[in-house]
Design a binder for these strands. Structure first.
Lengths: 146, 146
DNA sequence: CCAGAGAAGTAAAGTCACCTTACTATCGGT
DNA sequence: ACCGATAGTAAGGTGACTTTACTTCTCTGG
């Protein structure tokens, strides 16, 4: 029925495509389990919640470890704050800086997303066997780090 | 100096993050070698050029194999056509359908990007050894396919 | 001690890769 | 000739950013 060549399926895909497909899948699985409990939160927000240490962090530092601009990160922080997942306060010793912290609700959302990720990791580990899965992770680490 | 916890570095990252980093890297490497020769083309355009079979395809079919909407795909097609990488013509036997084809320039761009990808694959294969690399690709295939 | 360099953050607008909703044009069957 | 389905288009929206251009604040050197 489809007039297109079937070569373009999974078998012949290059690494970029394979990586993209796996990434799409894990993102979908995380959202599938979290979106009901925390409706406004998207994957990028969980990523940011993860980056905030327990004693808080400055927007500039968060932007740096997230490798994005202060403005971009600031937008996410504003969003999370509006929904009650983070708070922020100006430091008395330097009133330029805004120290961002997770609220208890933020902690909860983070724990929930981490549990969701852990479940995916566990399932993948069972699917492949722990040895293959660990060596897969190791390879990813080697390729991702310069 | 940085007041953030160093746990959030590469070592402790979860699969989603590892996948994301590897994907970012390969996309950057593809663009690094292609952007000079084909300035307007982005990774998504190479992806689309790849999907067009030699005898052309309809927008609807391309959208389906790319798993996106006809409108989204149509925008990319319009863009590529404006830059001369594709052409399209209405079929005489069904004047609703637009058959999209690559121009010689489109072929050239595609070949160039595929060579860039091949170079990355080769380098990764050398970095890990062919056995580990092939098993890495195999794992990705298993995880990406449902 | 205060001018001005530089850092922290904000505002506004733009970009890219999409999607949704709502069409028009055309086709194939009855 | 009508009618439902199909191919594609138009207009506008969204998410995750970016760039350019500031304000506000702090800290250092003449």
């Amino acid at each position: 029925m489809t007039s297109v060549n079937d070569d373009s399926r999974v078998g012949a895909a290059h690494v970029g495509r394979l990586l993209g497909m796996a990434l799409l899948r894990i993102r979908a699985e995380i959202l599938a389990t979290t979106s009901e409990r925390f409706p406004g939160l998207r994957v990028s927000h969980y990523r940011l919640l993860e980056l905030i240490p327990p004693d808080g962090a400055r927007i500039t530092d968060l932007a740096e470890i997230a490798t994005m601009t202060k403005q971009g990160l600031g937008q996410h922080v504003d969003y999370l704050q509006r929904l009650g997942y983070t708070t922020s306060e100006r430091l008395p010793e330097d009133r330029r800086v805004r120290l961002v912290r997770r609220t208890p609700l933020g902690d909860e959302a983070l724990a929930y997303s981490q549990a969701a990720i852990a479940r995916v990791e566990e399932r993948w580990s069972r699917q492949l066997g722990p040895d293959r899965y660990e060596s897969f992770r190791q390879t990813l680490r080697e390729l991702g780090a310069d």
